Computed example of a mutant assay.
Amino acid sequence: MPEHNSTGREQDESIIKLSFEPDGLLPNNPQLPAVLYKGVLRDHPEDTELIFNNNGWLNSWVNGVFPYHHYHSNAHEVLGVISGSARLQLGGDAGYTADVKAGDVVVLPAGTAHKRLSATQDFQIAGAYPGGADYNTRRATPEDLAAAVPEIREVPLPERDPVYGEAGPLLRLWK
């Protein structure tokens, strides 16, 4: 059974649920939590992109994470660490600092701010979107915030968890 702690996080052995309120010019997603799966793909991190694609999270890429706050207002995003490690800021400056390494997966609901604080030289991450959504990239500006808020409300829930498929915990956490 997941355990709740004073930071608003729900955890079990490998799943951390993170809820974020708006943070200045970053909308985040007060209705849906970000979900961090610690070590879920540690045995085969090189298969991360394939696993996402097989679960219907498409339009994938392999690269890094921008070193500035950004978010996607028209799509949910999954990020899976293939190699190396990084420190990511989730939810804006008042959010959560996640230390991620190969095998970790972060699922970000539309509007959730994220940026790279630091990374090892070999850091690589795969990203993908439910149904292969064509995503936008927004930053912390008044114009982007005004456009993003109505878009975030229109993003449909995914049909499958990017790691576990039809029976994944994401579907329960995002009801």
Rank of each mutant, 00 (worst) to 15 (best):
W57V: 02
E49A: 12
L41N: 02
H4I: 13
G165W: 11
Y135L: 07
P2Q: 12
P2R: 15
Q121V: 05
P130S: 06
P130M: 00
E3G: 04
P67T: 03
D134L: 13
E159A: 15
K17D: 09
N59G: 08
L173G: 07
A133L: 09
A133V: 03
V78Q: 06
I15M: 08
L79P: 03
L170R: 11
K17T: 15
T48D: 02
T120Q: 02
P158Q: 04
Y129T: 08
Y129N: 01
P45V: 06
F66E: 11
E13S: 11
E159L: 14
G39Y: 04
V155C: 10
N28H: 10
P22E: 09
L26I: 13
A146H: 04
T7L: 15
V81A: 06
T48M: 05
P22W: 09
V40S: 08
S83D: 09
K175Q: 15
F66P: 00
T112P: 00
A128N: 01
A34H: 06
W174K: 07
E21F: 07
A98W: 01
N5I: 10
T97P: 00
R138F: 13
P169V: 15
G84T: 04
G64L: 02
N29P: 05
L26A: 07
N29M: 05
L79V: 03
G131P: 03
N29A: 08
Y68E: 13
A34W: 01
P156A: 10
R87T: 13
V163N: 04
Q124G: 01
D43I: 04
R153D: 15
K38A: 13
A86Y: 05
F66I: 12
P2L: 14
P109T: 04
A133N: 06
N136T: 09
D104P: 00
Q89R: 12
G95K: 06
G127Q: 07
L88M: 06
Y164C: 12
H69P: 11
K101Q: 15
A113E: 02
I152M: 07
Q31E: 15
Q121D: 06
G24Q: 10
L90H: 03
L41T: 02
H76E: 02
A110M: 01
R153L: 15
K115C: 05
E154Q: 15
Q121N: 07
N63E: 12
E151F: 03
E143M: 03
P45Q: 07
S118F: 00
P156I: 11
A98C: 14
N136D: 14
V163L: 08
A140D: 13
N55M: 03
G8A: 08
L117P: 00
P158T: 05
V155Q: 04
G24E: 07
D12P: 01
T112L: 11
N136C: 10
V107D: 03
Y68M: 12
L117I: 11
